[in-house]
């Protein structure tokens, strides 16, 4: 960089230096080291690191456990993203209709979000094993009498239920801000033109809140795909590894079985998939946004 004096570089270092330093140390360097690890068989303890080329990746694609957790995570993401956005948007529509109690209810629906996912899992362990049983014997509704954490299909839905309970409120808050920002002229114009509720919803509100939809889909996908805490504390991947998310699988591979090499290879594949999903999703929804 010619022509830039000492002062330029001094200021550059003072202002940007710390951020770049910590960011490189914690994110960039480990990220690249991780890529190298994925070509080795390292157990994390001794210094014996052997290069094995692509064999970690090949073994992952043959590893049924990993493929299962990939399928589980994909299924979980599709179901939870769809449902949490439907619920979040419905709550937002309900609470923007000038109900007397809408302000306090926004707070209520948001509360589960401020609690750690780990603690939510513990709370719901109690609800599923004891609370549901109690409701079941009071009301005789079969829904509450299932062994929620005991069978493969119900454990999946148990995770979905808790995720919906936790995240819908957050999405609701974002949808509410989108709905409130729909210009009043548009609402009035729709009324004058005699649009009914459904027409207003489809042709005015949805296109106008597309930016919120982008944000909410983005958030929900990233939460669901990276789910760890709740999974760890509620089902621990069980029963029979049927609910093991990719994040949990990588964690177990590296820190419980001590296969850092395969763990790193899985982590790299995980990164590629997350990056791809994010990229595709942002492109699609950005295209659908309209200007007022």
């Amino acid at each position: 960089m010619r022509g830039r004096g000492k002062k330029y570089w001094l200021e550059e270092i003072i202002f940007i230096g710390p951020a770049v330093l910590f960011f490189s140390l914690i994110v960039l360097i480990p990220f690249f080291i991780g890529m190298t690890y994925s070509f080795t068989t390292w157990n994390g303890v001794n210094d014996e690191i052997t290069f094995v080329g692509f064999s970690n990746f090949l073994s992952i694609f043959k590893d049924e456990g990993f493929i299962d957790s990939f399928c589980f995570t994909a299924k979980f993401t599709v179901v939870s993203v769809t449902l949490s956005n439907i619920i979040g948007l419905s709550l937002a529509i309900l609470l923007t209709r000038r109900l007397k109690i809408s302000k306090p209810l926004r707070t209520v629906f948001f509360i589960p979000n401020v609690i750690s996912g780990l603690l939510l899992g513990f709370i719901w362990q109690f609800i599923f094993t004891k609370g549901f049983g109690a409701i079941g014997s009071l009301t005789q509704i079969p829904f509450f009498k299932l062994s929620w954490l005991g069978t493969e299909s119900t454990a999946f839905w148990a995770l979905i239920i808790v995720t919906l309970w936790q995240t819908s409120g957050y999405l609701m808050v974002i949808y509410i801000s989108g709905i409130i920002n729909v210009p009043t002229e548009l609402k009035e114009a729709a009324q004058i033109d005699g649009a009914n509720h459904r027409q207003y919803f489809r042709h005015i509100m949805i296109p106008m809140i597309m930016p919120s939809v982008t944000v909410c889909l983005f958030l929900a996908i990233s939460w669901a795909f990276k789910m760890f805490d709740l999974n760890y504390s509620l089902t621990k991947g069980g029963p029979y590894n049927s609910t093991k998310s990719i994040a949990l699988d990588i964690y177990i591979e590296a820190f419980q079985i001590n296969r850092y090499g395969t763990g790193a290879a899985k982590a790299f594949i995980f990164f590629v998939v997350v990056a791809l999903i994010t990229f595709i999703q942002v492109r699609i929804t950005k295209r659908k946004e309209v200007e007022a």
């Binding site: 914690i26 480990p30 994390g44 990719i246 590296a254 982590a267 995980f270 990164f271 997350v274």
Partner: peptide, 21 residues
């Protein structure tokens, strides 16, 4: 640009080497 792009990196992709670093 690097700061923005790095937001996609999930924690699980770096946690293994991070512990080592």
């Amino acid at each position: 640009g690097i700061f923005v792009m790095a937001m996609v990196i999930p924690f699980q992709s770096i946690m293994i080497p991070l512990v080592r670093v």
